[in-house]
Design a binder for these strands. Structure first.
Lengths: 158, 158
DNA sequence: TTTGTTGCAAAACGTTTGCAGCCTC
DNA sequence: GAGGCTGCAAACGTTTTGCAACAAA
């Protein structure tokens, strides 16, 4: 089963993700509907960022779902932290699977909206060693804005 | 004139901000309309975050402007980096004046939603020294999520 | 005079909501 | 069986757009 979703860390196989979701649903007395699992499965077989519309279109290919259910399920997945939401100025809210990790660095092209993730030990250390008098950190999101090489090239020509 | 806008670093007085805007308008062959300057002035006499609607209502008090012009002008101010835009998941996009500084750190309480800004030299250095192969950084936004002391206290009691 | 910019209102568009029927529990 | 969840379509609310009038260059 796991193989279907490609190489993945042992502790975050689709099976364990599904289990986390089930636990959440049971705990909060929500129903375990096939639609919800289909959406979770589709998200975890997808690489990179996506938005509700993209996800909906992918699901429609071999499943009957409504956009409303997609939004509804994304809300649940946000609540149990299996998905992270980004609202980066574009029209769409963007989402990504969360794998249980809470630290996210992103570079965002201010022209085409393309997002890439990266990791940087120095940045992580600097942020995590920050302490506040009246605030307890749980996780962070860093967005570095700028131009990707393609857009920089395009804009130079104009 | 500067006094009207409170204590402000010499190099970022309203006069110099206005000059930056004028230069931008001239360079890009946009017109120097009174509406655009009125909007800029209102933004720079305002403390903290705001959204288009709030700005529009403030302006309407003693000026005849349309919401469309507010959005149009915000777009120009974003382009010349006198204003920064945040899209933090609420319905509204939030804006703030940029003062020429492009670095914004925020702590966000995940319980009550309160946003505070802070500065940290170590974090700034770590981020600004980051380089990318196919990406040119212009500015960044850091959001540290967690609990403010009030909410931490409240949740402990439950 | 030319044409970029304005206000106004209507349109756009991602997201949410209302509702009747369905299907977990 | 009860009521949470679904699909559908209509509604919502922020932002954008079309257009005639206006005013900066």
């Amino acid at each position: 089963m796991t193989a279907k979703y490609g190489i993945m860390k042992e502790e975050h196989s689709y099976e364990s993700i599904r289990e986390i979701f089930t636990e959440y649903l049971v705990l909060h007395q929500h129903r375990k509907t096939p639609e919800r699992y289909a959406i979770l499965e589709r998200i975890y077989s997808f690489e990179g960022h996506f938005n509700a519309e993209i996800l909906y279109n992918l699901l429609k290919e071999n499943y009957r779902v409504s956009l409303a259910t997609v939004y509804n399920t994304l809300e649940l997945l946000l609540a149990c932290k299996l998905v992270v939401k980004h609202q980066l100025g574009g029209k769409f809210a963007q989402y990504e699977k969360a794998f249980g990790s809470n630290t996210h660095n992103h570079s965002v092209c201010t022209n085409c909206g393309k997002i890439k993730e990266f990791s940087d030990k120095q940045i992580r250390t600097a942020i995590q060693s920050k302490t506040f008098a009246r605030f307890t950190m749980s996780h962070y999101s860093l967005y570095i804005y700028g131009l990707c090489s393609k857009c920089a090239e395009l804009l130079k020509k104009k």
